[in-house]
Amino acid sequence: MSIQVNNINKRFGDFVALDNVSLDFPSGELTALLGPSGCGKTTLLRIIAGLEQADSGQVLLEGEDASDTHVRERQVGFVFQHYALFRHMTVFDNVAFGLRVKPRKQRPSETEIRKKVGALLELVQLSWLGDRFPSQLSGGQRQRIALARALAVEPRVLLLDEPFGALDAKVRKELRRWLRRLHDELHITSLFVTHDQEEALEVSDRVVLMNKGKVEQVGPPQEVYEHPASSFVFGFLGSANRFHADGQVGFVRPHELDIITDLNSTEGLEARIARILSFGASARVELYAGNGIDAPLQYEVELSRERAASLQLEPEKLVRLVPARLRVFDGSDLQGVGA
């Protein structure tokens, strides 16, 4: 089911959470709402779910205005960051909850409920945990149960609020791959909120980047990464080096910078090496701007280990930085500069 939001405004006191946001979420896609905390992404998700009321604007579900529909009737599955599992119920009863609270006429029989919950637990690969209580489960298991519970009522859309935010790095990574596979299986229109750019880029079909209650850019992960629409997007999607010149700021990713040791060259900028971190496939070099006598500005360069070794880099050494690609943002206009 498609979701459309039109001119949504929301304030909390003086704080503007959402500033005239309009977005279109096509049917069957997995979209990431990405942005720093306080950018309004969770508020937007909660307004779509009906857990929060917008001050003005419209939410259209499948083209129909849902602004006055209660969360009960919206048929949205909502997954919370902290799972919100019912602690006094077993895993089975948690998943069955949505089926058991249906009006008597629509309620499936207990055997059907059993079958359906069994299938859902199978889907989230936790069928052996049915009799346990949530407190006996790990974080990753709890979140999968929360997802199964949300799916039990066959929601038209699935909304996930920082679903992996409370998990440790390894489980996070596992779970987001799993979520992607699950989405490919079910094709249910899904929105998930995250502040982790890696997560957003890796999992989603489309990324919506938000900042200070406004949408900065919308597009497929590849596109927003390769062609960021603003300096905010560029900075948020990865590490960025800033070069100031003529009142303008140029942005370069660490792997797009090269180091040359020929100090007589007029190419690039002078910098002094502060630290070399060499592990994994690449080496990271941190540098001071200029000759480093009173230079607070730090640059970061990512090189292959071979390249780093051949340059014979060491701390305190003076080098020059040459950008392979420099971007200058003027307002929201993009001026890619190839070097």
Binding site: E73, V101, A150
Partner: peptide, 15 residues
């Protein structure tokens, strides 16, 4: 008691 629990119940269709 987190209000999230009540929100979760409501989103699952509970009165």
């Amino acid at each position: 008691l987190e209000t999230e629990l009540e929100e979760a119940a409501a989103s699952l269709g509970a009165s």
